[in-house]
């Protein structure tokens, strides 16, 4: 039987932990709201952007743009986006595991793999592999479009220079507050947007009639880098929101677990107290009996 004092101290300790997890839960809830608003504000931009890009690229040869050039794939770059901080359940682990699987798959095919890590978690995990080409840490807390632009530009430049023949993007996409799944997206070369059934039969007739200023090619030269920015920024936004949602859930679970532990410990404490009282009573009764005798 543990001593009364030990149990009491344990209970106090767990209570304090639960205070912290509860506070973290509330902080994450507040931050999630911010991240979600930011993400939702970006959606119309991304949607309109893809629409416009589809319109232009529909009748254009993909080979004439550096960012769209499909080459024989010898080296693959994986752009991994995770959060900077932990304590958010299996969120980062899932992303990292997915990247690792992807990495192993490419290596089994005899391709070289390099990594670009966004977020401390990915960087710390992959550091020992020595495959990290570039890393961006401490930006997930508060990032803007220009952070995404810097990353996209670096990756695109490396792609154009031949440092990688294909780039995959792995991030945690935000499905709902309760669900975040790791996702892999084909990043570069930009595939001429799928000539989907409904989209193109209707639009191809129209696209030809567009007046372009400057030429369509020059517009594409501007649009394609922008497109990479949009992709990276979107991934970062989703990871940002997912991180907070995951942490909220994790901290909620932790607070619940704390409650359970406190409950159990209180039982132990009460039992120990009862045992002590019974023991004392026995002593007193025993003493009284002895005096009588």
């Amino acid at each position: 039987m543990p001593s009364l004092k030990d149990v009491k101290m344990q209970i106090t300790g767990v209570k304090k932990t639960s205070q912290i997890t509860k506070a973290m839960n509330m902080v994450s809830a507040a931050k999630l709201r911010g991240a979600q608003t930011k993400m939702e504000a970006f959606r119309p931009y991304a949607g309109k952007f893809n629409e416009a890009l589809r319109n232009i690229s529909a009748n254009m040869k993909s080979s004439q743009f550096a960012l769209m050039q499909a080459r024989e794939v010898k080296t693959v770059e994986i752009l991994v986006v995770t959060s900077d901080r932990g304590l958010c359940g299996s969120f980062n682990t899932n992303i990292i595991r997915m990247s690792e699987r992807l990495m192993k798959k490419y290596e089994a095919e005899g391709k070289k793999v390099s990594l670009v890590c966004v977020g401390k978690k990915a960087n710390r995990y992959f550091r020992k592999t020595g495959k990290i080409r570039a890393h961006y840490i401490d930006i997930m807390g508060n990032f803007q479009m220009f952070n995404a632009r810097a990353i996209a530009q670096d990756v695109a430049a490396n792609f154009i220079a031949g440092g990688a023949d294909e780039v995959q993007l792995v991030y945690g996409s935000f499905i709902s507050v309760a669900r975040q799944t790791p996702t892999t997206l084909h990043f570069l070369p930009v595939k001429s947007v799928d000539t989907g059934e409904e989209a193109n039969t209707a639009k191809s007739g129209q696209t030809g009639a567009y007046i372009y200023e400057p030429s369509p090619e020059e517009i594409m030269d501007v649009l394609l880098p922008l497109y990479t920015n949009v992709m990276v920024y979107n991934a970062m936004l989703e990871v940002g929101a997912s991180e907070h949602a995951a942490r909220m859930t994790a901290m909620d679970n932790a607070t619940k677990a704390c409650k359970d532990i406190i409950h159990n410990l209180t039982m132990v404490y009460n039992k120990a107290r009862q045992a002590a009282i019974t023991g004392e009573l026995m002593d007193i009764v025993g003493g009284a009996e002895a005096l009588k005798g």
């Binding site: 567009y210 007046i211 372009y212 200023e213 369509p216 517009i219 501007v222």
Partner: peptide
């Protein structure tokens, strides 16, 4: 402010794309 200078657009303009 378009690529080749300012441009104006009225209703029912032809499809147009500019930086």
């Amino acid at each position: 402010p378009g690529y080749g200078g300012d441009f104006g657009v009225l209703a029912n303009h032809a499809p147009f794309l500019s930086t």
